[in-house]
Structure formats: structure tokens, C-alpha cells
Design a protein around this nucleic acid. Structure first.
Lengths: 277, 277
DNA sequence: CAGTGGTCTAGACCACTGG
DNA sequence: CAGTGGTCTAGACCACTGC
């Protein structure tokens, strides 16, 4: 049992979170002059940060259950309600999934009822499921040196090793997406074309299993572009066909960028769907 | 969504308090005759529904404060915590805004720190604020009969009166968005070109003030298209330039569609930004 | 049946806002 | 200063899951 916090006095706690050694804390003595440091956060946010650390450290694997609320409350010496609020936050960010009667589970890109969590392309009629799984054709997979642009976005240095993958995704036999992926070479060392092609299920699920990399959020920049000859050939459309250019930067924990992706989407039979709230 | 489990003794409602000030509490007598809605849902969701009704009925106007949590708890005869959870939900859906020390306010498209809540187009460098407000040029504003497509999306009948507005939005003097709007003729009766052009601030804010219509959420379908001659002229680009086609259906309360909008975005200096979680 | 997350309550105190 | 939302606790009970 690892202890990350000391016994909790009934008054506000500063931001310091480690310091496990001492077990007894000051009793509800008069709160001293603690106004000097304005940096403190609610207890439940500190707990959230601690759980986040464990997630990031891989203490619980994707798909596994994390300890129950009661256990976590005991570990952190807080009430169940405080742990609950921390987990509520994590669940709202899709980092964990709550299942009543069963437990709270580390989110995963596998076995998710929505198979492609980050793919917003939908057929104009029906949904993605109606088309069955996408067919993948890996056009190439090679080790290159990061260009200035790629390096900047992936927080690398120009010239660092990067894995570049080009592939075509087809739905119902129709090539629909042409994608280029750039992955940090050190983290994805050993990634092969066969791995990219052979894995059943979402690519991000493969990343979890093979490389321990969990994509947590992403940001997309979307533009309309005209297909050049090479792109048109791969997507089997006429040159100059308008295509959706989707540049995605995907992040793991701690806002670390881990994948750059540039997709070209055909939008004659599909569309990019977005919900605004 | 309001479906609850069955095959269990209907002993919901631990304290049998279903009612605000106006209605009588009916105990589960078992006959479905006077049960319009089953309503087996947690108390806080029922409270949320009641608050939603008041919002929809206009009991509190956009920008105004709703009663404090204590007041609402008293009104609905529940604890403050239950009201809090209901309001948490509403705040998560951007229907209300909480401000510590001040109160909870009905969300509005005016005076929002993000001026254009639904507009995801961003300049490639900087943000929307750096460009100042958009310049609006209303190309036309006329009363037409709804086509089959428009009628279907707006839940009207073909041939119903619809207001159609075409306009061009420019940023820094550069025409960037060409938009067509379709609005139900009955709700927006009296809408004039001058109103569309003259109002300072977001169009949705004008809808709130002038027509009591509050857009709550929206759904967009995005495609890449080529500009035809007329569109190219209005956007001052070459014909066949790839443009982002953004079809938006905006909803008020109760998932009622209230506006259809089709925008053509230039993406040479701007991009559509989307955050994925 | 025990264990889990989900709901609800009551009360305390904290942080922020404004008169 | 009073009033607001925000945090935290403790305990009770409910609904769901699986053994």
C-alpha cells in the first residue's frame, strides 16, 4: 500500500502532494497565516492528479479496473465523495469509464462501443457500423528524418528519427481516406508494416498493446484542398477533386504530442460530422 | 433516454417528492391511467427537467440569474446537493453558467467570452479576437417556400414559409465565409435585412433578443466542394477553388431544429478547428 | 450474497462577489 | 457583511453485476 498523502486536517491543503512519511498531521489548530502562497487546488483535483499519475505510470492497464472508490478513498485518506468527484472528472475526459456494479475501468481504444473514437467521418446514410470495418492498405512504412514542421508539432528536433506511414482506408471496397502518419521514432521503435497492416481493430488500440501508448485527446485542423495526381490515383478519383484535409495532432497524457496525422477524406459519399455544444 | 428498467417492484422515489409548487404528489398507485410519463429517473434528473421547463418557458431570460441553489432546493423540496447535481448537468450542456459568489445565469450568445460559440473557423495564426469582429454583408433576405430538403431538416412541411438569408462574412476585409440561412417563417416573422445587417454581435444573440429563440446545440456536416462561378465571385476566389462546405442544423430546447445554415469557408488563410476527446 | 458505482441527505466550512 | 457557488465529509439507501 502506497501512501501519497498524510492524514487530512479538516482545513484547506496546499498543493504539495507527496510527503508520505509523516502519518500524523496538525490537528484543527487555528489556521496559521497561509495566505502568502495562493497556489492551492481543491482536494479532489489533487486526488485526480494522483490517479492521473498512476494511469500514466501504467499502474493499471487499459481495459483493467482501477481500485474501487472505497479503496482509493482509504489510500488517499479522503472521503468517498471526494474520490468520486475526481473520478467524475476523469470520466468526463474519457480517461476512465464507469460501469455500475462492476467498477471503473481504464479507457481503451479497443473494445469500445464506438470503434473509432477519433474518426468523425460518417457515411451519408447509415453509420460506420453499417459499413463494417475499414479495409487498410499500407502504402509505405519507413524511417525518415523529421522535417522542421513535423519536428515542431511532435516536440522533436529537426532530423530526429520519425516513422512515416502512408495508408489508404476503404469502406465497402471504396478507397475513402488517404493518410500519412508521423510517429516519434524512439517510442515506436520496431513498428513494422506488417504490424500496421495485420492488427485487427483500431490502430490506436495496437499502439496501446504494442507500445504502451495511449492517445487521450487530439486536435484537428480541417481544410479543403484539391487532390494532386498521386493522391487522386490512390483514392481513385479525378485529379483536382476537392478533398477534406484533416491534420490531426494526437496527445498522450500530460499533453505530450505523440502522433501527427494528415488525412485526405473523400466527401462524395461521406461527411465529417461534428457536434457543437 | 427516459427509459428505466422494469421487472422490479416500482418502488422508485424514496421520499415521494415529485412535485414543485403547482402539482400534487401522486403516489405509485399502480394504474397507468393518469401516468402520462413513467418518469423513473433519479431525483436530480427530474429537477433538471423542471429547471429545463422553466428555461424553455422563459421564466428566466438569457443573461439573467436563476434562483440560488438554496431557493431551488426549497422550491422543489430537495436538498441543495440534489439541485447542485441538476445544475451541474445543465452547466455541462452550456445551458447555464455558474459564477462563484454571484449566482447561476442563463447562458446567452451575447456577452460570452467566446463571441462565436459555434464558429470553429480560426485564422492559421492568432485567434479570432486578433482579427476583430467579422464584417457582415447581407446579400439577400427573402421569404421563400421551403424545399423538400429544407422542410425535412427544419421539421416543417414542404412549401411552408421560410426566411432565407444569404450573406458574406469578412475578416480583416477578406471575404471568408459565404452563408445561406434558412429560418422557420412563423418563428422569425418580421425578420428584415436591416435587422440582420445592423445588429452588433453574434446573430444568435440577435435571435435571443428579437425572437426569443435560444440556440442550444448544433450539428455540422462538413464536406469539401469546388466553388461554382457565383460562389467564387462572392468570395473573390477563382472558380473551382476548393471550399469547406459546412451544413449546420441548430437546435433550441427539446431538440427542436430552428435554423439550417450552409456555409462555404475559404481555407487558404483559415482552418476549421476541432478538439477530440 | 457481497461489492460496485449511483443517488440523496444534512451539515460544515471555504472562496468569491458585492453592497 | 450577507449571499452565492464550491468543497468536503459521513452516512444511508438504491441499482446493478456477478459469484
Amino acid at each position: 500500500m502506497f501512501q501519497a498523502r498524510q492524514a487530512r486536517p479538516p482545513h484547506r491543503m496546499p498543493m504539495a502532494q507527496t510527503v508520505p512519511s509523516t502519518t500524523e498531521a496538525s490537528l484543527p489548530s487555528g489556521d496559521a497565516a497561509n495566505q502568502a502562497a495562493p497556489a492551492f487546488s481543491p482536494l479532489y483535483q489533487q486526488i485526480k492528479g494522483l490517479i492521473l499519475q498512476s494511469l500514466q505510470a501504467g499502474e493499471w492497464k487499459p481495459g483493467e479496473a482501477i481500485p474501487s472508490e472505497m479503496e482509493l478513498a482509504a489510500r488517499y485518506r479522503v472521503s468517498q465523495g471526494t474520490v468520486r468527484k475526481a473520478i467524475d472528472d476523469l470520466a468526463a475526459e474519457n480517461l476512465v469509464v464507469r460501469r455500475q456494479g462492476k467498477g471503473t475501468f481504464v479507457a481503451t481504444h479497443s473494445e469500445q462501443h464506438v470503434q473509432y473514437r477519433f474518426l468523425k467521418l460518417m457515411p451519408d446514410s447509415g453509420d460506420l457500423d453499417s459499413e463494417g470495418p475499414a479495409q487498410r492498405r499500407i502504402v509505405e512504412c519507413r524511417r525518415v528524418r523529421a522535417s522542421a514542421d513535423v519536428a515542431r508539432l511532435l516536440a522533436l528536433r529537426s532530423g530526429d528519427a520519425v516513422l512515416q506511414v502512408r495508408r489508404v482506408l476503404s469502406f465497402g471496397g471504396v478507397p475513402t481516406i488517404l493518410e500519412d502518419l508521423w510517429l516519434p521514432g524512439t517510442t515506436f521503435k520496431g513498428l513494422t508494416l506488417e504490424q500496421m497492416a495485420g492488427y485487427q481493430g483500431p490502430t490506436y488500440a495496437m499502439f496501446e498493446v504494442e507500445f504502451g501508448v495511449r492517445m487521450v485527446r487530439a486536435q484537428e485542423k480541417i481544410r479543403a484542398v484539391a487532390a494532386d495526381d498521386a493522391q487522386a490515383a490512390l483514392l481513385q478519383v479525378a485529379a483536382q477533386t476537392p478533398l477534406l484535409s484533416v491534420e490531426r495532432l494526437a496527445y498522450t497524457y500530460k499533453d505530450t504530442p505523440m502522433e501527427l496525422r494528415r488525412g485526405l477524406y473523400r466527401t462524395d459519399t461521406h461527411h465529417y460530422r461534428n457536434e457543437l455544444n
